[in-house]
Deep mutational scan, measured.
Amino acid sequence: EVYKVKIKIERVLPNGEKVEEEITIEVEGMSEEELLALARELAAEPGVRIKEIEIEKLPP
């Protein structure tokens, strides 16, 4: 199964400015739980906050 994972994050820059970013990846052969863990890892940097995680199962 192939999933499209869209992660919206908010990053706080050293000057205090907040910037929103969106990361989209396609992943194959992982469960939804593994995808959530991967998304959290991607956003685990200091000053980064996850705003939204969207997981979509793509048709075969």
Rank of each mutant, 00 (worst) to 15 (best):
K4P: 00
L35Q: 02
V12P: 02
I25F: 12
I25D: 01
E22M: 09
I9P: 00
K4N: 04
L13G: 07
N15S: 11
R11H: 02
I7V: 08
E1S: 14
A43Y: 11
V19D: 03
V12T: 15
A37H: 11
E28H: 05
N15Y: 04
I23A: 01
M30S: 06
V27H: 05
I53F: 07
E10K: 01
S31I: 07
I55M: 06
M30Q: 09
I7C: 02
V48K: 02
P46D: 04
P14Y: 09
I25H: 03
V12S: 15
I23F: 09
P14Q: 05
P46H: 15
E22A: 07
K51F: 12
I7E: 00
R40D: 02
K6N: 04
G16F: 03
E26A: 07
K8D: 01
Y3R: 02
E34V: 15
N15M: 03
R49V: 09
K18I: 15
P60C: 07
P59E: 11
I23Q: 02
R40Q: 05
I23M: 14
E41F: 15
E1L: 14
A43C: 06
V19H: 09
K4T: 06
V48H: 02
L42W: 15
K51D: 02
P14W: 15
P59M: 13
M30K: 08
E28W: 14
P60I: 08
I53M: 06
L38E: 01
L38I: 12
I7S: 00
L58G: 09
V2L: 12
K57S: 08
K18Q: 05
E54D: 07
L36R: 10
L36S: 04
A39H: 03
M30W: 13
M30E: 07
E26T: 08
E1F: 13
P46L: 13
E1R: 08
E21F: 08
I7Y: 05
A44V: 10
L58A: 09
S31Y: 11
K6P: 00
I50T: 01
K8Q: 03
E33T: 14
A44H: 08
A39K: 05
L35V: 11
I23T: 02
E32W: 09
E20R: 04
K57F: 13
R49H: 13
I50A: 01
E10H: 03
S31M: 08
E54N: 15
E1C: 11
T24M: 10
E34A: 15
E28P: 09
N15V: 01
A44R: 14
E34Q: 15
P14V: 07
E20W: 05
S31L: 07
E41C: 14
E34K: 14
V48R: 02
E52H: 13
T24N: 06
L38C: 05
R40C: 02
I25P: 00
E32K: 09
G29E: 06
P46Q: 11
P59K: 13
E20M: 07
I9L: 08
L58M: 12
E52P: 00
E45V: 10
I9D: 00
E33A: 14
G29A: 11
A44F: 12
I7D: 00
E26W: 12
V5Y: 09
A43L: 07
Y3S: 02
I25M: 15
V5S: 00
K18H: 13
I50H: 00
E33N: 13
R40N: 03
K6M: 07
I55Y: 06
K6L: 12
P60R: 02
E17P: 02
E54A: 09
E17T: 14
R11A: 01
E54M: 15
P59L: 11
E28A: 10
I9H: 00
V2I: 09
E34Y: 15
L38N: 02
A43T: 13
L38A: 03
R11C: 03
A37Q: 10
P59G: 13
L42Q: 04
S31W: 10
E17K: 11
P59F: 14
E41K: 15
G29F: 06
I55C: 04
L35K: 01
E56F: 13
R49Y: 14
E20Q: 13
P46E: 05
E41G: 12
Y3Q: 01
K18W: 13
E41L: 15
L36F: 12
E54T: 14
K8I: 11
T24P: 01
E56K: 11
S31D: 08
A39R: 05
K57C: 04
A37S: 09
K57T: 06
E20S: 06
I53N: 00
R40S: 05
A43R: 04
V27A: 09
E1V: 14
V27F: 10
V12A: 12
L13I: 03
V48A: 04
L36W: 15
L42K: 04
E28I: 11
L42T: 07
V27R: 05
I7K: 00
E28D: 08
K4I: 06
E34F: 15
I53R: 00
I55F: 10
E56T: 14
G47E: 06
E56V: 11
V5T: 01
E33R: 15
I55S: 02
K51T: 11
A39L: 10
A44E: 04
E41S: 14
P60K: 03
P59H: 12
